[in-house]
Amino acid sequence: MPQPTDPYEDDLDDLPPAQPVHYAEQSLLGALLLEPERLADIGDLDASQFGNHAHGALFQAMLTVPPPDPETHRSDPAWLNTVLDAARPHAPGLTASYLHTLIQVCPWPRHAPTYARMIRADHARRTLLMHAERLAQTSTDTTLPNPAASTLAQADTLGQFLDTLAGQFAPHPGSLPRTSVPGTPAGHSSEEALDEERLLLATATAHPAELKNMRWLQPDDFTLPLHATVWQCLTALVHNGKPVDPVTVLWEAQHRGLLTDGLDPSDLIALVSAPVGSPEYWGERVLQRALLARAFDVGSRIAAYAHDPANTPHQLITGSRRALADLTALRTRWQHTTATAPPTAVRAPRSPAVTRAGPAPRTAVPAARALR
């Protein structure tokens, strides 16, 4: 039988150990309680940058209450009581004994500017983590009406935050973060993504002339290596001016070694023999999915950096900027592809058989289901 729970017992012994920034916050507050005049030396620090809510409330009270005369403060605790009274409405758990504890644990009050820098650095790390996680979440939010635009807007917000950090922390030589980053999640290779790639390959085989204007789509944008190689077969045939149909694609695939791994030629022919809609429509779908997958990977990588407290602000800025750069090339291709033509431009009419108006119906490709 399970042992009864003692209502007077608590789980405080099971709490995780305090992080280093907790001691930095205590030391800074102790220094300011002991020598309030050092508030002028700690630079631009905000109460919201404290990880502990009570510490932030106490710091805000110090900013609100007029500072005491240094000589009077050495012998009169009136200012301490005033600060405590101002902070308690926002942090009822604060006590006079805790204020004295803060004073006792402060090693050196003259190190207050250094403690403040530690607090700013940890707040920067936590805020970067929030932006990175938001980028990853936005890229996988299926309820958004325009997921690509929302994701890129979040990437811009993250980039702007990095620019702000760069202005707050002086650059210095240092290595990139050594944090291990998560691998690409398998969730991006969904059945829907594979269906869209199959429909693109089949439709491109039926309308190869349109591939000349689709250089914005690259093999790396495909989730399945087989599909990427078949796309290379198609673009090579078009580039060389050769006829394109399921049989010629099969012949090109043979020269690229696709049939040496047990792939049945009939399955490959079936893969490129059921066109629906237009190549550009499905190409944009594939490119958007690649963009969102890349944004998810970038957000996850930056989040891994920010989760690791061993990284300095400089390492976080450098590593995060390099991660965002991996999104730039794909982003440029996406924006070039989806850019709205000027009002004066007249686009050539499209064949009704390959219209891009609205999503084309999803058509199963039974014979190609095994090509996964």
Rank of each mutant, 00 (worst) to 15 (best):
P2C: 03
P2N: 11
Q3N: 14
T5C: 02
P7E: 13
Y8C: 11
L12G: 03
D14I: 02
A18G: 10
Q19E: 13
P20V: 07
E25K: 06
L28M: 09
L32T: 12
L32R: 00
E35R: 13
E37L: 10
F50Q: 10
G51R: 13
H53Y: 11
H55L: 11
G56Y: 06
G56M: 04
L63V: 07
P67W: 05
P68A: 03
H73M: 00
R74G: 06
R74D: 13
S75P: 01
P77C: 12
A78S: 11
V83G: 03
A87P: 05
R88Q: 09
P89I: 05
H90T: 13
A96H: 09
Y98G: 01
I103R: 14
V105W: 00
P107E: 12
W108Y: 15
W108A: 14
R110E: 12
H111S: 14
Y115I: 07
M118W: 05
R120F: 15
H123T: 09
R125K: 05
M130L: 10
H131F: 10
A132F: 04
R134I: 14
A136F: 12
S139M: 08
T142F: 03
T143A: 13
P145R: 08
S150N: 01
L152H: 06
D156G: 13
D156P: 02
L158K: 02
L162I: 05
L165N: 03
G167S: 14
Q168P: 07
F169P: 03
F169R: 00
A170S: 05
H172E: 15
G174C: 12
R178M: 12
S190N: 15
E191N: 09
R198I: 05
T203L: 07
T205M: 11
T205N: 11
A206T: 06
H207L: 13
A209Y: 04
E210V: 00
L211V: 03
N213D: 15
D221P: 06
L224K: 09
H227R: 08
A228S: 10
Q232E: 14
C233R: 02
C233Y: 02
L234T: 00
T235R: 07
L237K: 01
H239I: 00
G241F: 04
K242F: 08
V244P: 09
P246S: 05
V249Y: 10
L250A: 04
W251R: 07
G257N: 12
T260G: 00
D261W: 12
D261T: 13
D264V: 09
L271V: 09
L271P: 09
V272G: 11
V276E: 08
G277S: 10
S278W: 05
S278R: 03
V298Q: 01
S300T: 15
A306Q: 08
D308M: 07
N311A: 03
H314K: 02
H314T: 11
Q315R: 14
Q315F: 05
I317A: 08
I317Y: 08
R322H: 08
L324F: 02
R331D: 06
R333G: 04
W334Y: 12
H336L: 14
T340M: 09
P343Y: 08
V346M: 09
R347G: 13
A348M: 14
S351Y: 13
S351P: 07
P352C: 08
R356P: 11
A357W: 04
P359Y: 01
P359G: 10
P359K: 03
P361Y: 12
R362M: 12
T363F: 03
P366Y: 00
A367V: 00
R369E: 09
A370I: 06
L371Y: 09
